[in-house]
């Protein structure tokens, strides 16, 4: 009889931000602790600081051997990892190379553990891209850094999860003027395939996936753009022929109402704000990012380091908690595959 609980790696995020407060608040909840075994990687003073700020504590055991995570620990485990704090302590509420290096060290170590099968999923508190870039990360974001470190060549894409609604986007952090040229049928199908796989990993057996149109009113039969007729519609048909439960394209100003009405479980959007506007409007505090397309489950709250409220103890734990819950589900499934 194997222990069914997933083994998660948790990192504290950028030390200049609200990560350690969130971790303290998350694991102070016995229900969250009960979902998974966890090994926290980082700077112990930082964890203590987070507890003090949040006014929330949890019992944990300090370890030096990461293998302890595989021995059915009765408490959360903590292992010191990553570049040490600079003299005088971590910079607060600002992006620094030292903070970024600390994040890359802990994430890299944790990622390697998941890749080796010593853990089942990785959850990380918010990072700061400017810190990561200052520390020498050359990738556009952490997702591509993860893929590179894993030697993974397949398509990767951020998936957003908000109160049960999953979304991915075909283009992301690019200028709006470049969006139309970047939309291809293959990319739409790949995005649908990727979100379908992630939904299955998270326990959705029969998800329904909607695809957005690009133009106002879906192009109004070609009057305001032809991408729906020439690219998006045919891609949806091809995806369906491949067995993917995809429908659309739907006009992007009302597709989210279909999700609210539970007619869709997931939406493939074509550009950043097409999804982000509705997502943040509907559930500003509940967003989770799943690092889609990677061979291992990785989740994080969708918000940033929130420098403006750092240290005030008022950071909302909802997204962190949702990231933890989704990683636990994905990790449990990953673990059951490994042991079967």
């Amino acid at each position: 009889m194997t222990d069914p609980k997933p083994r998660l790696i948790l990192t504290l995020g950028d030390p200049a931000g609200i990560g350690s407060e969130l971790v303290a608040r998350l694991l102070a909840d016995p229900e969250a602790r009960d979902m998974a075994h966890v090994l926290i990687l980082g700077d112990e003073a930082e964890l203590q600081d987070g507890m003090a700020i949040a006014g929330a504590e949890f019992p944990y055991r300090r370890v030096t051997d990461p293998a302890a995570l595989g021995q059915t620990p009765d408490l959360p485990l903590f292992m010191a990892k990553g570049r040490a704090a600079p003299k005088g302590g971590w910079a607060r509420a600002e992006a620094t190379a030292a903070g970024g290096q600390h994040c890359l060290d802990t994430l890299g170590y944790g990622l390697d553990m998941v890749a080796r099968g010593q853990a089942d999923a990785l959850v990380f508190a918010p990072l700061n891209k400017a810190s990561l870039h200052a520390a020498g990360m050359t990738h556009s974001d952490e997702l591509h850094w993860f893929a590179d470190r894993l030697g993974h060549n397949g398509t990767v894409s951020e998936i957003n999860v908000m109160e049960g609604l999953w979304t991915s986007r075909v283009t992301s952090h690019v200028a709006l003027r470049d969006v139309a040229d970047l939309i291809t049928g293959d990319k739409i199908i790949e995005a649908a395939r990727l979100i379908h796989a992630a939904l299955r990993e998270a326990g959705h057996e029969n998800p329904r996936i909607g695809v957005c149109g690009l133009n106002p009113h879906n192009g109004d039969n070609g009057n305001f753009g032809t991408e729906e007729i020439e690219i998006i519609g045919p891609a949806v048909e091809r995806a369906r022929a491949m067995g993917l439960p995809v429908e659309g394209p739907y006009p992007s100003d009302t597709i989210f109402l279909k999700a609210v009405a539970k007619e869709l479980d997931a939406i493939v959007t074509l550009y950043h704000d097409q999804g982000q506007i509705a997502i943040k409007l509907l559930g500003f505090w509940q967003g989770v990012t799943v690092q889609g397309g990677l061979p291992v489950p990785i989740t994080t709250p969708a918000h940033g380091t929130a420098f403006d409220i750092r240290g005030q103890g008022k950071a909302h734990v909802g997204p962190m908690r949702a990231a933890w819950t989704i990683a636990s589900t994905m990790g449990r499934r990953a673990r059951s595959f490994k042991s079967s």
């Binding site: 992007s252 100003d253 704000d273 097409q274 982000q276 506007i277 943040k280 409007l281």
Partner: peptide, 28 residues
């Protein structure tokens, strides 16, 4: 940033939002 200007707290700070394209206005 269009994605963070439409939640209730942000809306309280303006009387009208000027948007650059149709769906940026129609989605919210």
């Amino acid at each position: 940033s269009a994605d963070t200007m439409f939640h209730a707290g942000a809306r309280a700070r303006y009387d009208a939002a000027i948007c650059m394209y149709h769906d940026q206005a129609l989605i919210p």
